[in-house]
Simulated scan of single mutants.
Amino acid sequence: MNNQQAVTADRADGATGDGERDGPRHAEMELVVVTGVSGGGRSTVARALENVGYYVVDNLPQALMVTMAELAYRSGGATRRTAMVLDVRSRAFSTDLAGAVRALRERGFRPHVVFVDADDEVLIRRFESVRRSHPLQGEGRLADGIAAERSLLAGARAESDVLIDTSQLNVNQLRARVEELFGTPDVRTLRITVLSFGFKYGLPPDADFVVDARFLPNPFWVPELRDHTGLQPDVSAYVLGQPGAQTFVSGYAELIGASAAGFEREGKRYLTVAVGCTGGKHRSVAIGEALAGRLRDAGLAAHAQHRDLGRE
């Protein structure tokens, strides 16, 4: 479609002059339309898209697709990556998804249509496992509802850009597939926070690992170091120069590095490693900085934070 045709389409729909000028730029927006059979995994796809930074609108009436896309485009920021999830259970659902997608394209948008499917036998097992009926089943059998929905969605399936068959995929595999298709490498990477803290102030509630650095001599009892913190070179050198300190840091770096890939496969995107000492001023800060550095050297996205620094 050329620009003149796009402008003509905008005028036919009553668009404003601003809308006409925006048309060619709509293609810059990352727009995904998700539909598919009930029980196929639409909800998992929606959550995965949220994980990679999409603004997700669930159960959107098909008639509002163009309006929603325009609003998202004009809002800018995070909504420039928007996903619309269409559900056959919506009263406003129609069989003309192809027409709705065509209307988006006439406005200059370039939507990616994702259709989520699965074998009938798999769908039946999924519905039976949660003990609920199919939304189109009515008084008939579960298989009747699945067949009715397939007929309703036949056009949408044929028009899809991406077809994901979830018959042999578990939740984690489906999520990883969506992130592979629509995520950026940075978004899919596990991000590790090494958080220093003082045991006297309590454990961090979001800690995945808790590391205790209190086996090392406390710089608090060294007069020239007492008023300094673990961020300062003299304290850091003192702490890391103690017997066992470097082995301690190396051991935990290897442990976290060995488990990072597994956490990513299981869908975890943020990992908190809490390093504690008595007050969170000297030992935990120095060890935390050293551990974060070792993790970065190993190619992991890690940074250090210090919860209780300055409380003493």
Rank of each mutant, 00 (worst) to 15 (best):
V7K: 04
T8L: 10
D10N: 14
R21N: 01
G23D: 00
P24S: 13
P24F: 15
A27F: 07
V33H: 03
V34T: 13
T35W: 05
V37R: 08
S38V: 09
S38L: 11
G39E: 06
R42P: 05
R47D: 12
E50W: 07
N51C: 00
N51W: 04
V52G: 05
V56P: 07
V57P: 06
D58L: 01
P61K: 10
Q62N: 08
V66F: 00
T67Y: 03
A69R: 08
R74W: 11
S75W: 01
G76S: 09
A78L: 08
T79E: 05
V88E: 04
V88I: 15
R91K: 15
A100C: 04
R102T: 15
L104A: 07
G108K: 11
G108M: 08
G108T: 06
H112C: 14
H112Q: 14
V113W: 09
V114R: 09
A118F: 06
D119Y: 02
R125N: 03
S133P: 08
H134Y: 07
G140C: 11
R141V: 09
L142H: 04
L142E: 11
A143P: 00
E149Q: 14
E149P: 07
L153G: 11
R157T: 09
S160C: 15
D161G: 14
T166Y: 11
L169D: 05
N170K: 00
V171Q: 10
N172W: 02
F182Q: 03
T184P: 01
D186P: 00
T189V: 05
L190T: 07
T193N: 10
L195W: 00
L195Q: 10
L195M: 13
G198A: 06
D208I: 03
V210A: 06
V210I: 13
A213R: 09
P217T: 07
P217M: 02
L225T: 03
P233S: 02
L240C: 05
Q246L: 13
Y252R: 03
A253D: 14
I256R: 09
A261N: 10
F263Y: 15
K268E: 05
K268T: 00
T272I: 14
V275Y: 04
G276W: 04
G276T: 08
T278W: 05
K281Q: 15
V285Q: 07
E289M: 10
E289V: 06
A292T: 08
G299A: 09
Q305P: 00
H306N: 08
